[in-house]
Simulated scan of single mutants.
Amino acid sequence: MIGCLCIHGYTGGPYEVQPLVDYLEQRTDWKFEVPTLPGHGRELDLKGHYYQEWIATAELAYLELKKTCDKVYIIGFSMGGMIASYLSAKHEVDRLVLLSAAGKYISVPQMYKDLTGFLTEAFRGSLEENELFLHYQNKLKQTPFPSSVEFVKCVQFTRPFLKDIHNPVLIVQGKQDEMVPDKAAIYLEQEIPSEDKQLVFLNESKHLICHGKDKEELFETVISFLTR
C-alpha cells in the first residue's frame, strides 16, 4: 500500500491542501494522513505552541503511515514543505512534493503589489470584498508575534536538512506568490542534491497554490510525478 502525508503551512490547516488531497483520493487507493499542527486550523490558537511540536506531529503521522504502507509520499505546503523536507532527509520517503515551500521568505515585490491593490480597493470602497485581504486580516488578528518567531525557527532548523534529500523531488511555486518569492524555489532546487528533481512555476498562482487559478495544472503535475 502507498501512504501519502500532506502537511499544511504556518497559520493554516488541512484546508490549504484539501483540494489536492480530494483530487488524489478520487484517483488512487492510497492511505492519506493530513494532520492539523498544534494551534492551527480554521480557528488559530497558537499561543504557547512551539515549532518542535509542529515537526513532532508531522513525524508521528509519518510513522503511523509507515506501519501499514510499503511506500510513503510526502506533500508539504509552505512551512509544511520545510517540515516535509526534514522528514524526507531523516526517514525513508519515496517521493517528496514541495508546494510554495518557505525555504526563503517573504516576497517583498509581490507583497507591495498586493498592498497597493488593497489601497486602491479601499479608495473604491470594495476592500471588504477582497478575499485575499480578508484572509490575511483574519490571520494577523489571531497570530501572536512569538508564534511567528517559532515559524522562523522552524525554517532555520529544517533548512540544513535539504542537503540530505536524495529521493525524487517535485518543487512547485506560484509566480504571484505574495509570501514566498521565486528565489525560494530556485534555492530549494540548488540545495537539494537529488538527481531526480523537477521545478515547476505556475504563472497565475499566489501562495495558496492548491486554491489558485492554476490548480488543475498543479493537480495533474503532482499526480503525474507521484505515479510515473
Rank of each mutant, 00 (worst) to 15 (best):
G13H: 05
H49S: 09
E195G: 12
L98D: 01
E121C: 15
E129D: 14
L87R: 00
G39D: 00
S126G: 14
G9T: 01
H207C: 04
H135R: 15
V152A: 12
N203D: 15
G125F: 03
L46D: 02
N167I: 04
Y15T: 07
G39T: 01
H135E: 11
Q137E: 07
L37Y: 00
L60K: 12
K206D: 10
T227K: 06
F118C: 10
Y50P: 01
E216N: 08
N138K: 14
F157P: 01
Y50N: 11
F133M: 14
Y112V: 09
H49Y: 14
L119T: 07
D29S: 09
K66M: 12
G174R: 09
K215C: 06
S78D: 02
N138L: 08
E25S: 07
H166A: 03
F77I: 09
L63C: 10
S205C: 07
K113T: 06
P35I: 03
K206W: 02
A56E: 13
L170W: 06
T143D: 07
T28C: 09
V34N: 09
D164L: 06
Y187G: 08
L188S: 04
F123L: 11
G12K: 02
I7V: 14
Q137Y: 15
S100P: 04
Q198F: 05
N130W: 08
Q52I: 14
G76S: 10
V200T: 06
L140F: 12
F77P: 01
A89E: 01
G41V: 03
A101C: 02
K213M: 11
I75N: 03
E129F: 11
Y10F: 09
E121I: 05
E150T: 11
T11K: 04
L208Q: 15
A101W: 00
S148E: 11
K175Y: 07
P168Q: 03
V169L: 01
Y73E: 00
E33D: 04
C154L: 15
S194C: 07
E59R: 05
V200N: 05
S194E: 00
T36Q: 10
P160T: 15
V97C: 13
K71N: 12
W54L: 01
E121D: 06
L63M: 12
F133D: 03
E189D: 08
M111L: 15
I75H: 02
E150A: 09
L199M: 15
P181S: 13
S78C: 12
E128P: 03
F145K: 12
K183I: 05
G39M: 00
T11N: 05
E189V: 12
F201N: 05
A122T: 07
V108N: 06
L37G: 00
P144L: 02
K197E: 05
V17A: 13
Q26A: 08
L162V: 09
D114L: 14
I186V: 04
E131Y: 13
D164Q: 03
T116E: 14
